[in-house]
């Protein structure tokens, strides 16, 4: 039996006195799309950032594809990984940010090429061809030479998705990918994500797009105040929630 792609057991995280994750259990199987929903401050973005070790967890166990995130277990102890080892594991996990975080001093094509050339040591010509292919795939083949400042928010986010895909990740994390976009630009980004899900990518998506979660998600997880309130089939959780808190949240956003 293969390990699930993401497996969290009793994950805890504090910011000072504030306990933002109070023992989270979460399982994402290979090829599944898991949508994390909840009010702001519920800890969903923090959980996502823990999955590729941008935040360190303070307790519990968190594994990606069978490997512990940020630690190595040896005997009865957990040893924190060195920066080099953390970086190596992050190569397999793509991340897309709310505010895109494209590199402003590089063109769209250079943004996508950067990690394959500098991290995976791919040849420049090969990386360039592959980057062009990825930009074509997100519908921006003709914008390869543009700098991020010359692109719309929706275009920037699609370049950011192409940049994350360039490392051929086995897991993609999306942190509110459409929250910073004008409403008419949201559709293009969601289309790319829908296609990615159809191609069998394992995805964890923090989102406020209830429609997307219902349509594309295999599981929906509703979080509030650092705990998972309700999880399961999105058509159940987001249509006929069992918990009062979920129902109250949905009545506000729908």
């Amino acid at each position: 039996m293969t390990a699930p792609m993401v497996h969290a057991q009793g994950v805890r995280k504090n910011f000072g006195r504030l306990e933002v994750l109070q023992g989270i259990d979460l399982t994402v199987e290979r090829g599944q799309v898991c949508c994390l929903l909840g009010p702001s401050g519920s800890g969903k973005s923090t959980l996502l950032r823990c999955i590729n070790h941008l935040e360190k967890i303070d307790g519990g166990r968190l594994a990606v594809d069978g490997d512990l995130v940020g630690y190595r277990q040896h005997g009865g102890k957990l040893y924190e990984l060195r920066e080099r080892e953390v970086a190596a594991r992050r190569r397999d996990i793509g991340m897309v940010f709310q505010r895109f975080n494209l590199f402003p001093h590089m063109t769209a094509l250079e943004n996508v090429m950067e990690a394959p050339v500098r991290v995976a040591r791919a040849g420049k010509a090969e990386a360039r061809a592959r980057a062009q292919e990825l930009l074509d795939r997100v519908g921006l083949g003709d914008r390869a030479g543009h700098y991020p400042a010359q692109l719309s928010g929706g275009q920037q986010q699609r370049v950011a998705i192409a940049r994350a895909l360039a490392m051929e990740p086995k897991l993609m994390l999306f942190d509110e990918p459409t929250s910073a976009l004008d409403p008419e630009l949201v559709g293009d980004v969601l289309d790319v994500m829908r296609q990615l899900a159809a191609d069998g990518m394992t995805m964890v998506v923090v989102t406020h797009e209830i429609g997307f979660a219902r349509e594309v998600g295999d599981t929906a997880v509703f979080m509030d105040e650092g705990v998972v309130v309700e999880a399961g089939d999105p058509r159940q959780v987001l249509v006929e929630p069992r918990q009062e808190r979920t129902r109250a949240f949905l009545s506000k956003v729908l």
Partner: peptide, 13 residues
Amino acid sequence: GQTEAAHSLGMRP
């Protein structure tokens, strides 16, 4: 966010 994006791509510090 620039550093985070670079780290998420597997770039070392």
